[in-house]
């Protein structure tokens, strides 16, 4: 099945990820010319790869839960894919670092370490919890449906505003926290 579609994988050889003036991710890459029309007039334009500065690019995880560091899609501002990063750790250290930082920002999600109180009232639940980013307090609606089990024992909670909170392993929570959470699983 290989080779039916062509995907560019960005590696240390064909790509340089850098920080733009605003601290966002930019990319210089060795790849077929970008921005040419798919339906060029003559139909036989020159498609041989060359080095280009693509400017700001956007990153998106293909498997955000199972493989947060692998298969990162690199997109333009309209969401069209330039190519993929197979594995961030295969890139030079400083590039890997800036990419990880950007992804961390994009997938911002406090990790809940302890649940202090959960109270239910009129169809809403009110949560007080500790997280790696300090104390959290949020409310959820339709609680069962907004707690998603993602792979194994990981949970993602989505509150009424659309903010997300992660519980890495709900079985590893302390007994009291687990008891509070359990009702909504």
């Amino acid at each position: 099945m290989n080779g039916i579609t062509e995907t560019i994988y960005f590696t240390a050889e064909n790509a340089v990820f850098y920080l733009t003036a605003g601290g966002l991710i930019g990319l210089k890459a060795f790849m077929p010319p970008v921005g040419k029309d798919d339906l060029a007039e003559d139909g036989e334009s020159d498609n041989s790869p060359l080095w280009q500065d693509l400017g700001r690019v956007f990153l998106h995880r293909a498997f955000p839960y199972d493989m947060p560091d692998k298969f990162i899609s690199v997109l333009d501002k309209d969401g069209k894919e330039y190519g993929m990063i197979k594995d961030i750790s295969a890139l030079p250290e400083e590039m890997a670092q800036i990419i990880r930082a950007e992804l961390k920002r994009k997938y911002f999600c406090p990790v809940i370490t302890k649940i202090n109180t959960v109270s239910a009232k009129f169809g809403y639940t009110y949560w007080e919890a500790d997280s790696d980013m300090g104390k959290l307090s949020f409310s959820m609606h339709d609680t069962y449906r907004n707690i998603a089990k993602v792979g194994g024992n990981r949970l993602i909670l989505t509150d009424v505003d659309g903010n997300r909170y992660e519980i890495k392993d709900y079985l590893a929570l302390d007994r009291k926290s687990f008891r509070k959470l359990e009702l909504y699983l």
């Binding site: 003036a21 605003g22 994009k106 997938y107 999600c109």
Partner: peptide, 17 residues
């Protein structure tokens, strides 16, 4: 972004958050 947002603007040719 996924569940948050970043307010940016263009200054000259650069996008600045």
């Amino acid at each position: 972004l996924i569940s948050t947002a970043r307010v940016t603007a263009v200054f000259g040719t650069d996008v600045i958050p």
